Simulated assay, not measured.
Amino acid sequence: MSKAFNKVKVVADNRRATYDYSIEERFEAGIVLQGTEVKALRKSEGSIKESYATVEDGEAWLINSHIPEYSHGNRLNHETRRPRKLLLHQREINKMMGAVQRQGMTLVPMSIYFNGEGKAKLELALAKGKKVHDKRQAIKDRDWKRDQARILRDRG
């Protein structure tokens, strides 16, 4: 179901998202960054744990992502938590906007990475929030798979 993106170097990963949300569809988006932000990301600094994405006026934005200031930056260094514009096709933005408004879905950033061409990309997912019983079932399934692997490994 999910597309395989060309992730050469993953900078930030939102591992909690797959636990809190059921992922419906994934998109690859470019990010509008300043020079010092790219340098900080190349040093594998950055976090998208508390971040989310919105669609406003036909444009997609990444809100509350943290990219720390570049250590060798001068007075032209960037703000750490500024809103960053996402580069997507208009039909993708329309699809996301419709799903968020009609179906109550959420835009969740999954990871920031550099692709094969050296460009920073964001993996963005359309997701539905899981209920408590869904989370419990996910824990049971994960534990059973771990036990299953242990049993098969012991039997040889």
Rank of each mutant, 00 (worst) to 15 (best):
R26L: 13
E25G: 07
F5R: 06
A17W: 00
N14K: 02
N6I: 14
E25C: 12
D13R: 07
Y19G: 00
V8E: 13
K7W: 09
E25I: 06
A17H: 01
D20T: 03
V8K: 13
N14A: 03
N6T: 14
V32Q: 15
E28A: 13
K7N: 11
N6G: 14
E28M: 13
T18D: 02
Y21N: 05
F5S: 08
A17N: 01
E25L: 12
R16K: 12
K3H: 15
E25N: 13
V32P: 14
R26V: 08
Y19V: 07
Y19I: 05
R26Y: 07
K9N: 12
V32M: 15
S22K: 03
V11R: 04
V8T: 12
E25S: 13
R16E: 11
Y19W: 08
E25A: 13
T18N: 06
V11L: 10
I23W: 03
I31P: 06
T18K: 05
F5Q: 10
R15N: 03
F27D: 03
E24C: 08
N6S: 15
V10I: 11
E28N: 10
E28S: 13
I23V: 08
T18E: 08
A17I: 00
S22Q: 02
K3D: 14
V10K: 07
K7A: 15
G30R: 08
S22V: 07
G30P: 05
Y21T: 02
A17P: 01
A29H: 06
I23S: 00
A29E: 05
V10G: 01
N14C: 06
E25Y: 09
R26C: 13
N6Q: 15
K3G: 13
E24Y: 10
K7V: 14
V8M: 12
I31C: 11
A4Q: 12
A17K: 00
E28Q: 11
A12K: 02
A12G: 06
I31H: 09
G30D: 10
A17D: 00
R15G: 05
F5Y: 15
K7R: 14
E28G: 07
E25P: 05
A4S: 13
G30W: 09
K9H: 11
F5H: 11
S22A: 00
Y19D: 05
A4P: 10
R26I: 08
I31T: 06
A17S: 08
